[in-house]
Amino acid sequence: MKVGVLALQGDVREHISSLITCGVNPVAVRRSIEIDQIDALVLPGGESTTIAQLSEVFGIYNQIRDRIADGMPVYGSCAGMILLANEILDAKEGQKSFGGLDITVRRNAFGRQVDSFESDIAFNDGSADLVHAVFIRAPWVEHVGESVHVLAAVDKHPVAVRSERLLATSFHPELTGDHRIHRYFIEEVARPALEKVK
């Protein structure tokens, strides 16, 4: 399985080291030809407006949107969740997402940086262990479509959701050294989806 991390802006390096720990060989991708070669994609934390804009400027916006629509497994953290959402609230005027995940997400829903926080939360992957979650100017999910399952919530706001092939968290597992969410993406989301295609 060839996993790419979209490397236009954001904490690309942290996602790459988490993925290496999960036993895959990730590559940073910025160009169309690089995106052609991957089986699955991670959208990192960063500034969603910047990443969306750069994807258009460098001509890979349509390609990523289409590959997601065609079933490529994708995991997005924070900005990545916003980029996967079908609908964005409190967006910059005209802000685009790649879409594919039937959720409505509210940007900076937990507040500004002074409200950024860490917390131990339940993550519904079958384990009872809590996951240490770091929220930085984080979004939350306001509405989920029928195809979407909520895996974690804070104060009843969903903060981790998945559909069959897409996973999104509003927190940053790549910052904690706990690779459980990345492993979940590789083993429970991406691998089954790719095997089904074969």
Binding site: E47, D115, I121, R137
Partner: peptide, 22 residues
């Protein structure tokens, strides 16, 4: 569930999110 703000991790983490940017 306790939520902690202003930790070194959320402060440094915020800067991690700005990487590769202007």
């Amino acid at each position: 569930m306790s939520e902690v703000t202003g930790t070194a991790r959320v402060k440094r983490g915020m800067a991690e999110m700005l990487k590769g940017g202007v």
